[in-house]
């Protein structure tokens, strides 16, 4: 199983920076997410998580540091959180940190992700 490293790009579409590490279970999704083929992009990440949680079965530490994501991306982010919740229910060790831009609205959005998925998420204001 291999790491995922994707360099964030801000062009007409915005690709987030992604770093998923097999050895440590440290995973980061950062930057901006507005993609031409949102499901296709995120399905690679979902596959990685599925593989990691069924073969490596180590801890997962997720850092979400997104300054912008559109509504299509938000659906895929919920899919990721669902997988993490499932892994946790099956006994996996999962930590999720969500860095939010210091605004009421974004805090509400993280709270809604928590309600929507039942996953515990640490809410951390972005520097």
């Amino acid at each position: 199983m291999e790491d995922i490293h994707i360099e964030g790009v801000h062009e007409a579409y915005f690709t987030p920076t992604v770093n998923f590490e097999v050895a440590t279970g440290n995973c980061e999704i950062a930057g901006e997410s507005y993609l031409e083929e949102t499901s296709k992009f995120y399905s690679k990440l979902l596959d990685w998580i599925r593989k990691y949680t069924t073969t490596i079965k180590g801890p997962l530490n997720f850092d979400f540091k997104l300054s912008y994501f559109n509504t299509s991306s938000s659906k895929c982010l919920v899919d990721i959180l669902d997988l993490l919740k499932k892994y946790q229910n099956d006994g996996g060790k999962v930590t999720v940190n969500w860095y939010y831009d210091d605004s009421e609205e974004e805090l509400e959005e993280v709270e809604d992700f928590i309600l929507e998925t039942g996953l515990e998420i640490n809410k951390i204001p972005m520097e």
Partner: peptide, 16 residues
């Protein structure tokens, strides 16, 4: 939250 759940199964995302 409700519509985001539904949208996972539908193509149309304009509503969210």
């Amino acid at each position: 939250r409700e519509q985001r759940r539904l949208a996972g199964t539908k193509k149309n995302s304009g509503n969210i």
